[in-house]
Amino acid sequence: MLDAAPPDTPLIQMLDIDKQFGGVHAVRAVSVDLYPGEVVGVLGHNGAGKSCLMRMLSGAMTLSGGQINVNGEQVDLKTPQDAKRYGIETIYQTLALANHLDAAANLFLGRELKTRFGNLDETRMYAEAKDALHQLNPNFKNLKDPVSKLSGGQRQVIAIARAIYFQAKVLIMDEPTAALGPSETAMVADLTIRLKNEGIGIFLISHDMHDVFDLCDRVIVMNKGRNVGAFRIEDVNKDDILSLIIRGTLPDEWTPRGQSA
């Protein structure tokens, strides 16, 4: 595939990001960038610091060090609202749903639609939520049940629908298909490609090598909080990635695969 040179300013630049919790150094001097219409995989073993890195971009966590640029300008993402204002939407690994509320209330939580008198516009929120959810899962029922009653997959669908409903420019997907069945997983893969083609930049955290090689343009691998490798997906194969994830280094005889081929 011959792709044009990426535009000069990346959508997102994370530079020398650090995160410490007391003695725990969760993220160490990690730099990564993201261009429009690109899917960047963030890989690593459990506890490698992937979620922490992404949560700092979501405004859910403060930086201990480093800098975040959006469209080339330094930003200070103090709250999730700040990040959303820059068009950064997140599907959290924990889903971040309020169990006692129904699907529509969760989808619009914090950004409720209102009538002209300022009351909650339940009818419109319900209709929009129904549309958004049915795009991902045409069989989605139980729209009026509290989400605590729904299956893990249904809950994940709500979290995904919420992130894409508000026209993200940057989408962070933290293991978005962990609880999904094969058809929903395929749906999310299609969706990812569609959004990418619309010019949205996507960070994808996944443990599924199949998804990673199908969807990502580039990957970064984290090991014990460090960025141990950033590659175009053509330059690595599954074994290289696994070696990086597990040992933190490439196989000894490694050369960029894309060039040798």
Binding site: A60, P80, Y92, T94, A98, R111
Partner: peptide
């Protein structure tokens, strides 16, 4: 219901 979820949702 879920304070952290509310915060992350922008409440």
């Amino acid at each position: 219901s879920n304070e952290e979820a509310a915060r992350l949702s922008g409440v």
